[in-house]
Amino acid sequence: MTHAENLPGWAAILVSLLLLLGAGLGLVGAIGLLRLRNFYERVHAPTLGTTLGIGSILLASMLFFTVLQARPVLHEVLIGVFMVLTTPVTLMLLARAALYRDRREGSAEVPRSTTGEG
């Protein structure tokens, strides 16, 4: 990592902390996928990575390139905005698909539908 030699110390420390926080949250979310007991519990696990996890890695990347190139590098914001918009949609779709499938099989674990369909 020779390109990072002339990065000031405070920026290097801050980028390191943000990277470790983000990657740690991503890992905890993935461990949650393994440890939690049923699908509806596991749906909660990836949100750790998709909110604060990717957020802090994006912040680290923005800070790193902005300080290194001495000009604002902000395009990481796009991934952030995109993640914020898409994660709820995918998780809701998945939760609804799972509910639908479980109800079709007459599972006792999920509450009955109030709308009458599905």
């Binding site: 990592m1 030699e5 290097a12 420390i13 990277l19």
Partner: peptide, 27 residues
């Protein structure tokens, strides 16, 4: 010194993310 801290944390972050990807593959 700080460059070393940075390269170690980049390495650790990559390791953690790779482990996490392993967990998801397992699932």
């Amino acid at each position: 010194m700080t460059a070393m801290i940075l390269s170690w944390s980049v390495f650790l972050a990559q390791l953690m993310l790779a482990l996490g990807m392993g967990c998801t593959i397992w699932r």
